[in-house]
Amino acid sequence: MIRFWGQSKFSVDPLKPVGCELFLREKIGDSWVLPDDFAQFPPQQIADLLLQTVPVLSKDLKNVSINLDPEQFIDPEFCAVLSEVKNQLLPVTLEVELTEHDSKFPVNSSEIQTAAKHFFEAGIDLIMDDVGSGSNQIDRTLLLNPYISEYKFAIQNFRKTRSLTSIIHSLSFWCELAAKNNKLFTVEGVESKTDLQLLINYRVNLLQGFGLARPVFLPIQAERSRRAVLPFTQK
């Protein structure tokens, strides 16, 4: 059994939930876990789960995003089925986040670029997830720039146990690149009021992190007894 868990994305001014990132989880025994192999779930199964899940979200949310690893991203069937369901999700907008994960088998730059072009032509917004981490370095980002609408910078990938001020150079670089290329800029991994206060000095469009809202289980239509709790209460 698979379900989505959801974590809200917040606008900066005012600070309120405006979107939701969906994380696929698999039930093993009594626990919901990160699947060992996402390839075991065909594109149509993911699309069907989207259609069952999005209606339980708060109507205040404007968009939802799902993560695709490079192998999924270059699979033409994913673009095809997501193109079919995106209009059924309206007025909620569907977005795709290309993860920074290293590929289990070789995926070349040409395949990534071609897939990005197809999503773009299908009217599906693309998000470069965790820029500066894993495979989503500057070369791939610039290659896909014509098709990307948003960069996401994951604080947690850089600072680990360090303070946010220790990664200012990396944060500034990606913030400036987003502004230069007219992309939305999201900072994820926001954990405290101190983080928020520091980020005021940067051109940040969206925020995400445990300090604002943690991921929560999302029922599907057949399971719900009430509307899911998104958007979340701020902490």
Rank of each mutant, 00 (worst) to 15 (best):
F41W: 14
I220M: 05
S11N: 13
A47W: 08
S103Q: 10
V204N: 01
D129W: 07
P70D: 03
R227F: 06
A222P: 02
N108S: 10
S135R: 07
E191D: 14
P55E: 06
Q137K: 07
F41N: 05
H101V: 12
H169E: 10
T114C: 14
T114Y: 15
L90N: 11
L206F: 15
I112E: 12
V18R: 07
L94V: 08
D13L: 13
A47E: 07
L90C: 11
I155E: 04
V85Y: 12
I148Q: 00
L207F: 04
L57N: 02
P106M: 08
R224C: 07
Q52P: 01
K59P: 01
I127H: 05
I167G: 05
D75C: 13
L57A: 03
S58D: 01
N108H: 13
V18M: 09
M1I: 12
P17Q: 04
R3T: 07
N157C: 12
D102Y: 11
E95P: 00
E77C: 04
A228P: 01
N145F: 04
S135W: 00
R214S: 07
Q234H: 05
R227Y: 05
L144H: 00
Q234P: 00
L15Q: 10
C175Y: 02
L50H: 12
Y202V: 02
P17A: 14
K62T: 13
D48M: 06
L90A: 15
L98V: 03
L61E: 05
F119S: 00
I155C: 09
K62S: 13
N87M: 09
K183G: 02
L82I: 11
L22H: 10
T186L: 13
K59Y: 03
T141H: 00
C175M: 07
A80T: 08
F232V: 14
D102R: 13
K160R: 09
E84H: 07
T114M: 15
F119E: 00
V204W: 02
N182C: 02
R203G: 08
K193S: 14
F41T: 10
K27T: 01
F78I: 02
N145L: 14
I74Y: 03
P91F: 12
R224K: 14
F120L: 01
V92S: 10
K59I: 05
D30K: 07
S163W: 04
F78Y: 15
P70A: 03
A222S: 13
C175I: 02
D125C: 11
E71W: 08
D129E: 11
R227K: 08
K160W: 03
F10M: 11
R226L: 09
K62C: 09
R226H: 09
A47T: 08
L24Y: 10
K183L: 04
T233S: 13
S11D: 13
G211Q: 03
H101E: 08
L98A: 00
T161S: 11
R25C: 06
E77M: 07
I124G: 01
D48G: 04
E21F: 10
F173M: 12
P219K: 05
E176F: 09
Q113T: 12
S135F: 00
I46M: 15
A178V: 03
N201A: 12
Q197E: 15
N108M: 11
D130K: 06
I2W: 14
S110R: 13
N157S: 11
A154R: 12
V12Q: 07
R214I: 03
L90I: 10
L82D: 04
